[in-house]
Design a protein around this nucleic acid. Structure first.
Lengths: 244, 244
DNA sequence: CGAACACTTGATGGTCCTCAAGTCGAGTGG
DNA sequence: CCACTCGACTTGAGGACCATCAAGTGTTCG
């Protein structure tokens, strides 16, 4: 049975990857139990971020990658005219900061959408530990590759699809990722505003709102402000069959 | 002085990374000369791909990453309805196949736009050689991170900008990448069709054509079919100041 | 209770897609 | 050498979709 997601989980954590409450995600996935024990060497620090605060900002020198222990993040680019555009929403178990490795400076702001906690992992430690833990290097490559594929999927959405399909795709994506984390996939609260969703999907907040209403009128979802109930998940997924 | 780009270079290559004709790109960039000598161990095979043929297809099991020695590629996703959407264009010195690491299967088709040649590099060899060549792992991480940042830049374009700015951004990007490879940045032939540009930019081929005409009318470029002359590069770049 | 904020809904207009009719250039065969 | 063809490209007309502007509702929290 799925539990409803708690917005700001007050879990007491054990400072160890082996005992991490998260399911098989993060750097740990696919590693042997002995290897997992070594992972604790990686974590330089754990850090709490309050709602609205940032973990890092675009242009800050790259210092570490971060594994999200709890809470949602958004990553947003700052355009030259001062506006922001959201590049992604990030859940517990996912990594932040990969965009900073190439240039040595982060490309995005990473902002907590609710009280959150992260594990800071200096990249050089991962690269060093990779000498001992054979599968670790590969696991990091997988994570980065998945990020590339995820971004490409967004590019497909933004490039070709109408507003309704974009929102449907967004909801299906959120639902799947909740599901993978043991949360209810069909009954959840969105941690972001309509404006943020619109920024992510290349739409205005008004259009997002209208599309929520339309999906509701089609009996695919039930909307009450930020609370979403998915009534017909296969119907939703049918909306994005042309999207892969 | 810049040389004009030859569409299908008939270079004789020395089968060695140390003697590679490409400038500081690919896995080599930033490595010491001794380390570069070791890179040859990585290259499993060199392969020629003719125009229109594919290096790999979406769904093929992940076998290797590829460094482009010569020729242009496009990478395209196949949508469920059979249409294709182009995720990127790729030049000599860039890597292909990074999207296959995460899932173990390539996510795109990689198709040569002209006669091309690649170096096939099994990922496990990179991961093994990383134990001896300290900086190699980091260099791969940089490359993957740069790919993420590049994709994000496209997302910004697709999400927020009008057709004219998208095309201007495309041209500036191509121009910069030519420049980095020693080719003329303001006088070149595009190796792709209007339709392919449109697929990449989220536009129809008609709109791409219209925007070429408009940029020409504004005296920013000169268009003759696929041959482009950049008349006012700073004017072009001014069009995307709101884009970062 | 009022203020601030997030959200919804309506009216209007601009941008880009669609459909359609050309033009241009390269390659082929008579 | 010229006609023919085919694919790539250009240009025009009309319409769909979404952005913009605007007004109003709902919720939260001091």
């Amino acid at each position: 049975m799925h539990k409803r997601r708690e917005p700001a989980p007050a879990e007491q954590y054990t400072a160890s990857c082996a005992n991490c409450v998260l399911p098989e995600l993060c750097l740990r996935a696919g590693l042997s139990p002995e290897d997992v024990k070594q992972l604790d060497q990686l974590v330089y620090a754990r850090r709490k971020i309050r709602r609205g605060e940032d973990l890092y900002r675009a242009g800050y020198p790259f210092a570490a990658i971060y594994a999200i222990r709890s809470g949602f993040f958004k990553s947003e680019r700052v355009l030259k005219d001062g506006r922001h555009q959201i590049m992604g929403f990030h859940m517990p178990g996912e990594m932040l900061g990969l965009d900073g490795i190439g240039t040595g400076a982060y490309a995005c702001n990473a902002v907590a959408l609710e009280l959150a906690e992260v594990c800071a992992i200096p990249l050089y430690r991962v690269e060093e530990l990779s000498h001992q833990v054979r599968d670790l290097a590969h696991r990091l490559h997988q994570i980065m590759s998945e990020e590339i594929v995820r971004d490409q999927r967004v590019m497909v959405l933004l490039g070709g699809r109408g507003a309704e399909a974009r929102l449907a795709s967004f909801l299906v994506d959120i639902s799947h990722r909740f599901s993978a984390r043991g949360y209810a996939p069909a009954d959840f609260d969105l941690p972001m505003t309509r404006e943020e969703i619109g920024s992510y999907l290349g739409l205005t907040l008004e259009t997002v709102s209208r599309m929520f209403s339309r999906l509701q009128a089609e009996n695919l979802i039930k909307v009450q402000q930020r609370h979403i109930r998915v009534l017909d998940s296969s119907g939703l997924e049918r909306m994005l069959e042309t999207v892969v």
